[in-house]
Design a protein around this nucleic acid. Structure first.
Lengths: 202, 202
DNA sequence: ACCATTTCGTAACGCTGTTAAACAATTTAA
DNA sequence: TTAAATTGTTTAACAGCGTTACGAAATGGT
């Protein structure tokens, strides 16, 4: 009867091996080149065995996502526990989020999807249309209280804007049901906040 | 010799047909189910012909991205031209960006990649770890000057935070080279700005 | 009318995720 | 101990993907 336990332990082990191998492959070669046959190779089995541990490939990714959220959740909690003031807590929590993203880049990509083509730099090879960054550049410069601001600073300010707007758009595209007037309100408020912060700082 | 022109016109037409069909399929079935064979079906050809007009599938997507940027660029420019004050210009430009995203949802997804799994709502089925939203909820509530704030408002505030942080993380993951101290500075500034805006408003 | 070139479809390659069936090993029952 | 049943694992295959090689058919120029 104890052999049941041993077998269960072996099963758990290969299940963990599948997850570990998947993450390792993603770290080494990127998520897009992760295949069932590669995982099978890594755990020294053939592909069909994986389906005794996971329903399909997506289930593996979902389990890894779950792992990621567990780590992230713990990190955020310990950050929160170090302060009493809500404002301080909030800052610490987001800094923990920030640190998690860089300590677990592949997990973060899996959880939140970092794309290649957004905003700064990556769209230089679009000759016909000026890139949004270029269009925003001069306007942002004229808001900064400095004669010659660093290019990276402008890019970063632009990206701050873009992040907020893009985030609000995303939530609306994939989760309809927010009242449009409230969205407009929030959007305008966020924009004017950032404008103020640009004018204030530097 | 005029037949050369006619042929060229036909070629341009099928090239445009390929792009139109691709976008239409994406609108109807989503980008992930867009295949070369489906495009070929739509333009009433077989798959290999497409390769006489585009080097590969990615080239089609890139061309559509270019299209998207041209439209977006024009929209932003006309919004900008309606004002003189930089702050007003900036607001109008981002509102134009916003409108573009909803008027061309599929193009926007292609250009900036809207993921399925971020933040609010979509991660409910992760029982073991509290979702980040839940962890942030009470802290955000305690910052709002209201006894009983609307749940959607909290979610939206959370998403505003998340957008900024996620945006800054993205730019750092895929484009290294920004000085870490500046990033930290910008991150903390953005966070405290949002905190202030939360405390101020409502 | 003939040749050259372009246009297009068929078939195939190597890859993907996934499943069915067959074989081997192990555990259980008589 | 031997037979039966269950489990573990592999091989083979399917359907789909992006992409390419090749041959046939249609076209244009001389």
């Amino acid at each position: 009867m104890a052999s049941k336990d041993r077998i269960q332990r072996l099963k758990d082990e290969t299940r963990a091996n599948i997850l570990d191998a998947s993450l390792r492959i993603a770290v080494e070669e990127g998520w897009q080149s992760l295949s069932m046959r590669k995982i099978a190779d890594a755990i020294e089995y053939t592909a069909p065995v994986i389906y005794e541990y996971f329903a399909n490939k997506e289930a593996i990714l979902l389990e890894l996502t779950r792992r990621g959220y567990m780590i992230l959740s713990k990190d955020i909690q310990t950050a929160k526990n170090q302060y009493q003031l809500p404002a301080k807590q909030l800052e610490a929590m987001w800094l923990a989020y920030w640190d998690f993203a860089f300590a677990n880049q592949e997990l973060y990509q899996l959880m939140f999807g970092v794309q290649i083509n957004c905003c700064c730099g990556v769209v230089e090879d679009l000759p016909e249309s000026k890139s949004p960054l270029n269009q925003f550049r001069e306007v942002i410069i004229s808001l900064i209280n400095s004669a010659d601001p660093a290019p990276d600073l402008i890019c970063l300010k632009y990206y701050t804007f873009w992040s907020v707007v893009h985030g609000l758009i995303s939530i609306n595209i994939l989760k309809r049901g927010y009242s449009p007037e409230m969205n407009n309100q929030v959007l305008k408020a966020a924009i004017s906040d950032i404008i103020n912060s640009i004018a204030k700082a530097t």
